[in-house]
Amino acid sequence: MKRPTIGDIARRAGVSKAAVSYALNGRPGVSEETRERVSRIAHALGWRANTAALALSAERAGVVGLVVAGPAPWTVVEGIERELAIDGVALQLAIVRDAEAEAETYRDWWAARRVDGVLLLDPRPDDHRIPLLRKLNVPAVLVGAGAPDMSAVLDDPAAECRRAVEHLIERGHSRLGHVKGQGVSRNVHRAEAFRQVTKELLGCEAVEAEGALEATRELLATPDPPSALIYDDDAAAAETVAHAAMLNIHIPTQLAVVAWGDSNVCQLVHPGVTAIHHDDAADGASAARLLLNHLKTGIPEQRTVDPGRLVVRGTT
């Protein structure tokens, strides 16, 4: 027979999977009546916590791992460390050269029992790291994408796209462009949401190009160039502003610029870049808390964080 899941319990109890997790984990957020009903149904279905996630409970390393192949997202790391510290858990950070080194790091950590679980940032579609972690039975939390039976912190790209597009429409723009960044799942989902929102609000999809300054040149050279560009990468947006004279454009009168992420680089150029600001530290803390919960209960959870807020600056 198929092993019962928290989804089965949630359907039988008429509550969300998050409520089931809270009830079985003894966490606040559900009534005692709900907690008792969920426990009875879980017992009746023969549900048991995932033993892979609980296997180290008696010999816990007290360490969570994070591997980064590239620049470390320090604000996210800060949020992760702050949340882990509440439970006395340490963060082990490894910055590696490539995907092969990252995979080897996971194998070494798990074989040596150096970590109890890992956090995986910005997975790609068909990411090789996900089946590897499943094969190793490493408890993990994905940040920026979901996968079946794995904990994850997700964002709401549709809400953010709507805020950005509505702002540009208010500024008189009707022809938008999208400069795409790395092919991580977060960017892929955002691109799809952006297409849907622009089609709904403007009756047409935005034009797209991938890259940075060259992508900007490509879009501006089209017969009907966009009057506003939205960038996945805030550094690419700032680069466009910095090279406006070379591109022979005036910002914002000839071209408006918006970045999906908001970092210090958005304020280092003039005019400052209008951006969607995310609380990266809070997202890191959410991911850490999900992993700590998973290690205690063996129950995977998915949590959607609040949409970022639009910070309007001189580029729009």
Score class of each variant (00 low, 15 high):
Pro4Gly: 09
Ile9Cys: 07
Ile9Arg: 05
Arg11Trp: 05
Ser16Cys: 06
Ser21Val: 02
Gly26Val: 09
Gly29His: 07
Val30Lys: 04
His43Gln: 15
Ala44Asp: 15
Trp47Phe: 12
Ser57Val: 04
Glu59Cys: 09
Glu59Asp: 14
Arg60Gly: 06
Val63Cys: 11
Trp74Ala: 08
Ile80His: 00
Val89Asp: 05
Val96Cys: 01
Ala101Cys: 05
Ala103Phe: 09
Arg114Val: 01
His128Cys: 05
Leu132Ala: 11
Val141Asp: 08
Gly146Trp: 04
Pro148Asp: 15
Asp149Gln: 15
Ser151Arg: 10
Ser151Met: 05
Leu154Gly: 10
Asp155Ile: 09
Cys161Asn: 08
Cys161Ser: 12
His167Thr: 13
His173Cys: 14
Leu176Thr: 04
Arg190Thr: 03
Ala191Leu: 11
Phe194Gly: 03
Thr198Glu: 04
Thr198Met: 01
Leu202His: 06
Ala209Cys: 11
Ala215Arg: 03
Arg217Cys: 00
Leu219His: 01
Ala221Cys: 06
Pro225Val: 05
Leu229Cys: 10
Ala235Leu: 07
Ala245Asp: 14
Pro252Arg: 11
Val257Glu: 06
Val257Lys: 02
Val269Asp: 03
Ser286Lys: 08
Ala288Arg: 13
Leu291Ala: 11
Lys296His: 10
Ile299Arg: 02
Glu301Gly: 06
Arg303Lys: 11
Pro307Gln: 08
Gly308Phe: 01
Val311His: 07
Val311Ala: 08
Thr315Val: 13
Thr315Lys: 03
